[in-house]
Design a protein around this nucleic acid. Structure first.
Lengths: 254, 254
DNA sequence: CCAAAGCCCTGATTTCGGTCAATCAGCAAC
DNA sequence: GTTGCTGATTGACCGAAATCAGGGCTTTGG
């Protein structure tokens, strides 16, 4: 966080110069030398919506920066019931350190851009650069905060509160007008109704009904089933339930 | 009590020699020098059931190793609804790095022994010893795994599956006969019915009914409302729902 | 053009778990 | 002993959300 002297991108790989992962992601922890080392091993790729990221070579043998798009993490019960246990937005570092096997599936829910690295390269980086691991710890602590916020939502909120909470969370992460206390917002839902229901632990019918209700109440408008305009963020917030934890939200900090 | 350094065990502070935190906790990351540095600033304390750990000086200004007992982390909605978002067993490192304010409450649910350190000492340690931060990252990743396992339980399991899952989780963490594939188990519940319900996102009446049901089915026996004997772990496991994620459980690894 | 497949919405009905309430056991204080 | 308190259990009833079912819109592809 100290003031940088003039760098004119000295030594920073071209690929990385404008990369979000360097500005807000884990790569910000790396000095030019390390950056060059990693960049030499990286490969960018476009992935379309619906593609599994874990299960194939993608994430078992590699780590990736999520540069654009949204990825969902899911867990399933043997009888088909499914729960989304994580939604990741750019620039997020994907991949589970110290563990080869994972019971979690990852899937692109929108078009996605990845910058992938071989497992070994990243693990070398983690050993060599404490700052890198430090960033990883911060990201993980944030994910933990989110997961816990969510436990409250799944365990203790009603269906309508769940849907309102979901919309708020998406708004915070997707909406271009980044202001966390904005009066209105507008964004595309990255998930289908069925996926939202898997996120909230309810059925897609219930999601649909609650969205209809919010529309009827004049809190939101919906276009093409995907684009949501929140006319009254304050009402949406109050429907998501005024809680201490809601105010000091975890996604926005650090 | 100034038994600081009794250098028989090659520089390891007496206090730490038999400490679980050194064997299975974060202190295992420290070499004797660092250990001495930390041990000089530490203070052990007993805390009785029901005492808040965060909110007072306990955890805001300090970090602690949980040496014995069980601590619950809770979040509340403004209307009183509550959700337990974490249960921590010894030897767990308590305290949230990089954040002063937390919307999470921590409370001892059994008698608890802590080994506490000043905030500054720990943060110095984190800067100085990458291995220490590495352990912390591992612990955090484990907590994240647990939280996610749980999201599935809260979002997608029935009441009876929730209670069975809860008993399994407690058995894994409390039962002395550590064997993860044991045929039977026996342990004291660290939580009241109301706390279990806050853990599982259901009501205490439902918890009670489900326990009664399990008793009627001959899966468990209960003494004094607290002591549980699981006669058939396999049946309990099958009631908790056969899931891919259940098998490869997160608590046992690393 | 029509057909088939997804995705979404809405209505009717059922059910699981919540709510309300009564009872009981254990325990501490007086 | 009585009183009061907390926690657990059980029953009766009710309601929020699941389930079941139908129908509409869009996209894809013959």
């Amino acid at each position: 966080m100290s003031v940088r002297r003039h760098i004119h991108t000295s030594g920073i790989p071209v690929l990385c110069v404008h990369c979000e992962a360097r500005h807000r992601g884990v790569c910000g922890a790396l000095d030019p030398d390390n950056l060059v080392g990693l960049a030499n091993t990286c490969s960018r790729r476009q992935i379309e919506s619906g593609v599994e990221l874990i299960g194939d070579a993608q994430a078992v043998d590699s780590y990736s920066n999520l540069l654009s798009g949204v990825v969902k993490l899911t867990k399933s019960l043997s009888d088909g019931r499914q729960q989304i246990v994580g939604l990741q937005f750019a620039p997020h570092f994907l991949g589970r350190p110290f563990k080869v096997e994972s019971s979690i599936n990852a899937e692109a829910v929108t078009a996605v851009t990845l910058c992938s690295f071989p497992r070994a390269a990243v693990e070398r980086m983690m050993k060599g650069s404490p700052e890198f691991e430090h960033r990883l710890l911060k990201q993980t602590l944030n994910e933990l905060d989110e997961a816990r916020e969510w436990l409250v939502t799944l365990g203790r909120k009603t269906a309508s509160e769940k849907v309102a909470s979901f919309l708020l969370m998406i708004a915070r992460n997707i909406d271009s007008s980044v202001d966390p206390v904005a009066r209105s917002a507008s964004f595309d839902l990255p998930l289908t109704r069925a996926e939202i229901s898997d996120f909230l632990g309810i059925t897609n019918e219930t999601v649909s009904r609650q969205l209809t209700q919010l529309r009827a109440d004049g809190v939101i408008r919906i276009e093409n089933t995907r684009h949501v305009m929140v006319d009254s963020m304050s009402r949406l917030r109050s429907m998501a339930m005024p809680s201490l934890s809601q105010k000091t939200d975890s996604l926005d900090r650090l």
